[in-house]
């Protein structure tokens, strides 16, 4: 459903993405691995046009979205859960969730989804009038994911959802991502935590300084000597 063909992105003179090609199919979880600075976040930012692509083509559900503005891309159903959570600290939980549905016009559907989020994450309901900044790290990640779900997305981009969370909480967050995928949403997951991410994903890509160096099923990647050494910790 999402295809990137030979994507080049620059930060000023820095050639951050040097010809990325990848694809996400319907109902799939695809993970993007790589060291710091490999360009994983930039890839996600390029997909939703927060960073402009210089060369290459991004198509989504048969449409060319390379030149589309971010808000239009979001409207087509790509939800981006950015790195470091980036919830709105001075908006209440309720307002945060409503911001997730900013581009949606169907008020009834939004209310239904809001109820669904509260049912699914009771802690958000208990604190709906509190400011986002008062939540703990794990709760903020949940809020960021729930905000992303309020779009009723067909594709969700997760950027380091496990960043700065306790191991027990990471497991819970990954469970939630799995649930989201099982309900029919395709997922593109960027992770440092390669082990957990590969166990969750169907396929994976490995990035190194702006290029994709490896592409395989997650089972093969988990047992690939090179990947084991570089990202999983040698045994």
């Amino acid at each position: 459903m999402l295809t990137l063909e030979d994507i080049h992105t620059y930060y000023g003179n820095l050639h951050a993405l040097q010809g990325i090609s990848l694809s996400v199919n319907e109902g799939e979880i695809v993970c993007l691995l790589g060291a710091n600075g490999a360009g994983k976040t930039t890839t996600l930012m390029s997909i939703c046009a927060i960073n402009r692509v210089k060369k290459g083509k991004i198509s989504y559900l048969g449409r060319d979205i390379t030149k589309m503005a971010t808000d239009r891309i979001v409207k087509t159903g790509i939800s981006h859960v950015p790195e470091g959570r980036r919830i709105f600290r001075e908006l209440t939980i309720h307002e945060n969730l409503m911001m997730g549905a900013f581009t949606r016009k169907d008020k009834k559907g939004v209310q239904k989804d809001l109820k669904r989020m509260y049912d699914h994450f009771p802690v958000l309901y208990d604190r709906r009038q509190q400011y986002g900044g008062t939540l703990s790290g794990g709760e903020q990640q949940i809020l960021a994911i729930a905000r992303g779900l309020m779009l009723r997305p067909k594709l969700m981009l997760f950027d380091e959802p496990s960043l700065g969370l306790a191991p027990k909480i990471i497991a819970q967050v990954f469970d939630i991502i799995k649930e989201i995928n099982q309900s029919g949403t395709a997922v593109l997951l960027v992770e440092q935590n390669a082990n957990a991410a590969l166990k969750l994903a169907h396929r994976g890509y490995v990035m190194e300084s702006g290029k994709i160096v490896l592409e395989d099923s997650s089972y093969n990647l988990l047992h690939n000597e090179q990947v084991k050494k570089a990202y999983l910790g040698a045994e």
């Binding site: 927060i50 980036r86 709105f88 600290r89 908006l91 900013f102």
Partner: peptide, 23 residues
């Protein structure tokens, strides 16, 4: 209104505001 909420979102976090689809 919706405009006001969009402003608050931009004030707090421009990337998140873009990510939820605010122009």
């Amino acid at each position: 209104s919706k405009i006001g909420r969009a402003w608050f979102a931009i004030r707090e976090n421009e990337i998140a505001a873009e990510a939820v689809g605010i122009n």
